[in-house]
Structures are given as C-alpha cells and as structure tokens.
C-alpha cells in the first residue's frame, strides 16, 4: 500500500474511548443482576453469573486496555486539494478516498465526553453517506471543517 495519510487524531481520543469502553462493559454487566437473583432465589447453578462476569471483565479489559490504543495508533487522515484520505481499523485496515468534488456538507459534532476533553468529530457527508474523523482538538476540527468546505465549494448543482 502507499504511504499512510500524514495526520494523526488527538491522543486524548484514547481516554475518551477508554471511558466509553468502561460504559460499554457496564452495560454488558446488566444481565448479571437477574443472573445473581436467579441463583439466590431459584438456585440456578453458580457458574452462570460467574461465566457472565468473566466475559464482562475480559470484554472490559479489551475495550479499555487494548483497543483504544490500537485504534488511535492506526487512525490517520489527510485532507488534500482533490481528496480526503482516511485510514483506520485494527483487524480490517481500511483506506478510504473521498473525492473533494463529491463532498456535500461537513459538520463537526461533540458529545458530552468529547466536550469535556475539548475534542470534536468531523463528519463529511457525500450523496452516498457520511464519513467521520473522530476526536480532533476543537480548533483543529473547526479549521478542518472550514477548509474542506472551501475546497469542496459545496454547490447545489453537484450531486
């Protein structure tokens, strides 16, 4: 493959993803409550909640300690005059090319977590769908958005 796109996303993305990972694991832990209840009240075998807990803990470790770091490591982007170039993926490494002329509009978006860390996601929409560059520093994201819009000269006639 060709050389990678030049820019990295903000390193604090790792922290945001780690926190999100904790929440994901906590959501997965919800079935533990009825499982424990079933063991206590209906004498279900103990291994049911234990197995569940082990799965949740493993999942949490992967989502917190492993994936965010790898994800950040791989994520690259580059905005050039004629195209936007994205690279991402841990298992399946994917390189996406969006021709500048196809860009319809560009948004920046911040969730609560992202705002706390001063990060924003840039969302690039084409007629076929949206592509994201996650977790850039707010000012970088804003600047990127504006420069993509300028390059794309978003017009009504273009589909």
């Amino acid at each position: 493959m060709q050389s990678q796109p030049s820019e990295r996303i903000d390193w604090r993305a790792v922290k945001v993803w780690q926190i999100q990972g904790v929440f994901k694991a906590l959501t997965m832990a919800i079935p533990l409550v009825p499982a424990v209840f079933l063991v206590r009240e209906f004498s279900w075998p103990l291994w049911v909640p234990v197995l569940l807990a082990v799965v949740v803990i493993l999942y949490g470790i992967v989502e917190v300690a492993l994936l965010p770091r790898l994800r950040w490591e791989r994520w690259r982007y580059q905005v050039q005059q004629e195209e936007i170039d994205l690279q991402r993926g841990i298992w399946f490494i994917k390189r996406t090319l969006i021709p500048m002329g196809r860009v319809q509009h560009v948004d920046t978006r911040q969730g609560i977590l992202m705002r706390r860390y001063g990060l924003a996601t840039v969302i690039i929409s084409t007629a076929a769908g949206a592509h994201q560059i996650p977790a850039l520093r707010e000012d970088i994201a804003g600047g990127l958005r504006d420069s993509i819009v300028r390059l794309a000269q978003v017009s009504d006639d273009v589909l």
């Binding site: 399946f92 996406t96 076929a128």
Partner: peptide, 20 residues
C-alpha cells in the same frame, strides 16, 4: 465521476498473501 467514496482494505489473512 459518480464514485462518492472509494475504500481499499485488508484483514491479516489477506495481508499475508498480498490481497486487498
């Protein structure tokens, strides 16, 4: 001109044999 986005990707097995 009608291509809105173009993606090339590979998983580890594909990378081992040079496919995408």
């Amino acid at each position: 001109g009608s291509i809105q986005s173009f993606a090339v990707g590979s998983n580890p097995f594909q990378r081992r044999v040079g496919l995408v």
